[in-house]
Design a binder for these strands. Structure first.
Length: 922
RNA sequence: AGGACUAUAGCUCAGUUGGUUAGAGCGCUACCUUGACAUGGUAGAGGUCCCCAGUUCGAAUCUGGGUAGUCCUACCA
């Protein structure tokens, strides 16, 4: 074995082996366990957040696979309509071609080409992370099967009246030329202005002053509204104003939506270009006057003079024109929320268009009930509130997108605009008995990507066919996801699945935190703080990292800033830590928090942990390979105290890990493993094995027992650790397993260790704690007295009870070795104790005679520190016990515990004080 | 505006149903290349558990209020 752990070649070698051997496929088993991967964008790449999520799913999957479940981790990607179309459109633009020149069919071909070419990135990354996905069942939302499911769902919902088409205000992206859902609009505060305009009253006397943040919309005003109880304007209600620049007259109406305090208390109402105004327009029967075109330039019913102007150009012009007419009252600075498309970043326009909608309210009812009655549980439970809040106030879902890339809506129109929905034009004709010569035109639009991913849990398993897979693996066991898509995806999956399957899509939703950078900033390309998980695995040079982060940056200023920050944060680039270390880092961070700050220091620590594991195995193998490891059941085996103790500790760890995983606390599971492996197995057990293995006089049964324990315990915790660190455990297990009498082609299909309460041994635990106490006591004196570690000491024991005597008798060789002692002996009751440094283990006093090695002043100082500590504790405990309320009301056991504590502390202090006296007299 | 979450060592975080000497990793200090490992070992320093009140014999933990930060939802033209 190499002296240090070298992950690089081990990882790819094992992954290929596993995949080629089809170990990731379901292996049978009584109970099914399945997870559907949240499908990443097929043309995207994995970022740290994905890495985190995949690691969690893989740990759960590997754990359950080993635990004997029939396990499926369904893999696949989604087509990400807008994002993918944008990328391909941009590429074409670079060649000077627009998609319209190319035409729909050719364009879609281009997208498929791009998918073929770039789609491998994400699956390659998934493999590098060690994800044990069943690649044989890989799905894509645009596959034939999944497309059929989408069509089926659309048609059935339409027939059930749960999908309808309507002319509504939608969020219109004027650059992408498509409607987007509420969730795809990000509103943020921006600096703007509040313009005050005077609208003259019809009839010529006076005016009203309205305030607006969007002057250009005045061209589409249909009314001016005031509050019904606003005395300032009460007399104007029912009259009309002259709408400047348009030659139209519009009424003054009363509506209690109006806030009297804001602006002038008069609001211009533009029903075709504002969601609130639209509602008010409906209440008052106002006309919808559209004044924009698809590019958000002035168009529609706007005065010809302005038609064709960009909306912001028009804004300037209109303000200038109103000013020229003397109708501009004033302009105030104003902060307002500006809605922008999350993909394009441009300001979204409320815009009147024909769209398809899902009646979400109807579908939401059973979806709410499923969480209320516990059929679906969120972990942490907190998130159920978020889910309810949104679901109980859900809006109809606009599912049509004016894109080319996606599932085309299965609807046809005749020349009169009558709509027919069906699986094909032929089917529609047949069903409605339409004449052949009748012209039908398919709807141009495609469906929102989330419409297809809402079907993900069952469409991937073959629905609408009733497949074996559906029967076996649906509902899935758990959905692992971030809280940012509870609305986008989780809620919609629950609605669709309940509606079509009459069962939940998953029993549990495990909501994890979002990975952020070291400063707590969200990782994003434009901030230039993204880390590719692969770069943490393989490492990356600073220069490459800089160019990777600044590639494709449009703004040189931003690129320079990112470069500077990167050079500062990673002056040496990023080291190669390997997949296992990265995964373990993820697990250690997977607590219940919402933000996960990724600190590079953590991964380094876990890389070291990998190395520790590697070297522990190296030690075990060096001492066991070619030796008698107790495989022959005929030969006598003697187990030492240490052997019994480590086996007992192992059981405890198994319990802890199982409990933590059941509660989705992978941070606690990883910590339990880390502690056991490093602090118990390596720090103590390996050291305790040395006195036995290296003792030429030790008998064979003892050596056999120790070797057998060394190898068995190692083999067991390798399996215990495997779901978290798949590669290093497999690599080591291959060599270790035969020595432990185990065989099998891979660790990943071995049974997961289960604790055996019979192997728990509290007596061994207590003895080892005693042993540790004595050793630590001596080491403490050594450390604080600056006695060289190489110097062997003579130690005397005083005041021990029978238990102490037994323990010493049984464990003297351990003590000699681990505390580096020349000799250890009891001080007879009658014997005068030499002047010595002292440590206490219960009542037992450990004396390290000072002779010439110990500095008097240093020991006095050390004792003074110890005594002070004890005194502080004594004071606290005494205070408690002097409080009659405590003694009377606290449970007897608690009081008794405090009494014992007090006694122990007093005794200890007294002994140290005596010791102090003696040394002072030297 | 409403709601949620967070606040514990220099940093990143655990702390289960109130009873601990409040823990871990990283970092820091001192010593040590001893035959698994310097990606290591041994020892050590380091905390007003955000603040204020309350409940309780007892609060990091429960309740109320405040402060700071993060986020979500809705939105005033």
């Amino acid at each position: 074995m190499e002296k240090t752990f070298q992950p690089a070649d081990i990882e790819t070698r094992w992954y290929q082996e596993w995949e080629a051997s089809n170990y990731f496929a379901p292996q049978g088993g009584e109970q099914a366990y399945s997870i559907m991967i949240p499908p990443p964008n097929v043309t995207g790449s994995l970022h740290m957040g994905h890495g985190f999520q995949e690691a969690i799913m893989d740990a759960l999957i590997r754990y359950h696979r080993m635990a004997g479940y029939n396990t499926l981790w369904q893999v696949g990607t989604d087509h990400a309509g807008i994002a993918t179309q944008m990328v391909v459109e941009r590429q074409l633009e670079a060649e000077g071609i627009s998609r319209h020149e190319l035409g729909r069919e050719k364009f879609i071909e281009k997208v498929w080409e791009w998918k073929e070419q770039s789609g491998g990135t994400i699956t390659r990354q998934l493999r590098r992370l060690g994800s044990s996905l069943d690649w044989s069942r890989e799905r894509f939302t645009m596959d034939e099967g999944l497309s059929a499911a989408v069509q089926e769902v659309f048609i059935r919902l339409y027939e059930q009246g749960l999908i309808y088409r309507g002319k509504r205000l939608v969020n219109w992206d004027p650059v992408l030329h498509t409607a987007i859902s509420d969730l795809e609009v990000i509103s943020e505060e921006e600096q703007g202005h509040l313009w005050h305009f005077n609208y003259p009253l019809a009839g010529g006397e006076g005016h009203l002053t309205v305030a607006t943040t969007r002057p250009e919309t005045m061209l589409g005003d249909a009314a001016v509204a005031v509050h019904p109880k606003d005395e300032r304007y009460a007399h104007l209600i029912g009259r009309s104003v002259e709408l400047p620049l348009t030659g139209r007259q519009i009424p003054v109406i009363a509506d209690d939506y109006v806030d009297r305090e804001f602006g002038t208390g008069c609001v211009k109402i533009t029903p075709a270009h504002d969601f609130n105004d639209y509602e008010m327009g409906k209440r008052h029967g106002l006309p919808l006057i559209n004044i924009l075109d698809d590019d958000a330039a002035i168009g529609g019913e706007a005065p010809a003079h302005y038609v064709g102007m960009d909306r912001y150009e028009a804004r300037k012009q209109i303000v200038a024109d109103l000013d020229a007419l003397g109708l501009l009252d004033k302009i105030d600075e104003h902060t307002l929320k500006v809605p922008r498309g999350d993909r394009s970043g441009v300001v979204i326009e409320p815009y009147l268009t024909d769209q398809w909608y899902v009646d979400a309210r109807e579908l939401a009812k059973p979806a709410i009930a499923a969480v209320e009655n516990g059929d679906i549980q969120f972990v942490p439970k907190q998130w159920e509130n978020t889910y309810f809040a949104w679901m109980r106030d859900i809006q109809d879902w606009c599912i049509s997108r004016q894109l080319w890339w996606g599932h085309r809506i299965p609807a046809w129109y005749d020349d009169n605009g009558k709509v027919y929905v069906g699986e094909s034009e032929a089917a529609v004709r047949a069903e409605h008995q339409l004449a052949d010569e009748m012209h039908l035109q398919q709807d141009d639009d495609v469906l929102d990507t989330w419409f297809s991913s809402a079907l993900w849990t069952f469409s991937t398993l073959g629905w609408p066919e009733e497949t074996e897979e559906l029967k076996t693996f649906h509902p899935s066991s758990v959905l692992v996801t971030g809280f940012d898509i509870i609305f986008f995806w989780v809620a919609r999956m629950i609605m669709m699945t309940l509606h079509f399957r009459k069962e939940v899509p998953f029993h549990t939703v495990y909501v994890h935190g979002l990975v952020r950078d070291g400063e707590g900033q969200k990782m994003s390309k434009s901030k230039g703080n993204v880390i590719d998980p692969i770069d943490l695995i393989d490492g990356i040079e600073l220069e490459e990292l800089v160019s990777k982060r600044t590639a494709g940056m449009m703004q040189p200023k931003l690129a320079a800033k990112i470069e500077k920050a990167t050079r500062k944060q990673f002056p040496e680039g990023i080291g190669a830590y390997g997949t296992d270390a990265l995964r373990f880092t993820y697990f250690s961070l997977a607590s219940t928090g919402r933000d996960i700050k990724f600190d590079i220091g953590r991964i380094e620590g876990f890389r070291n942990f990998c190395n520790k594991i590697w070297n522990a195995a190296r030690y075990v193998l060096m001492n066991c390979e070619g030796e008698d490891c107790g495989l022959d059941a005929e030969l006598p085996v003697a187990l030492s105290l240490a052997d019994r103790w480590i086996v007992s500790k192992l059981q405890e760890t198994e319990v802890e890990v199982a409990r933590a995983i059941a509660a989705y606390r992978l941070d606690l599971a990883s910590q339990a493993l880390y502690e056991f492996i490093w602090n118990e197995y390596c720090d103590w057990y390996l050291e305790l094995s040395k006195p036995v293995l290296w003792d030429e006089h030790a008998d064979d049964a003892a050596k056999r027992g120790t070797r057998r324990t060394l190898i068995r315990v190692l083999e067991t915790w390798l399996r215990l650790l495997h779901p978290m660190m798949p590669f290093i455990t497999e690599e080591i297990w291959q060599t270790v397993a035969p020595l432990a009498g185990k065989s099998g082609p891979t660790i990943m299909l071995q049974p997961y260790p289960e604790s055996d309460t019979g192997a728990m041994d509290s007596a061994a635990n207590a003895d080892i704690e005693w042993l540790k106490g004595v050793i630590v006591g001596v080491r403490n004196i050594r450390g604080e007295m600056n006695i060289p570690p190489g110097k062997a000491l003579t130690v005397l024991l005083k005041n021990g009870n029978e238990e102490d005597q037994r323990r010493l008798a049984e464990n003297a060789p351990y003590l000699r070795k681990l505390a580096k002692l020349e000799d250890i002996a009891w001080l007879e009751k009658t014997e005068e104790a030499p002047v010595a440094a002292t440590a206490l283990v219960g009542e037992l006093e450990i004396l390290v005679p000072m002779a010439d090695l110990i500095d008097k002043e240093a020991e006095l100082a050390r004792l003074a520190r110890e005594i002070e500590k004890l005194s502080n504790d004594l004071q606290r405990v005494q205070g408690k016990l002097n409080n009659s309320a405590f003694v009377d009301k606290a449970p007897a056991a608690v009081v008794e515990k405090e009494r014992e504590k007090l006694q122990g502390l007093e005794q200890a202090r007294q002994k140290l004080q005596e010791q102090e006296q003696r040394i002072r007299q030297m």
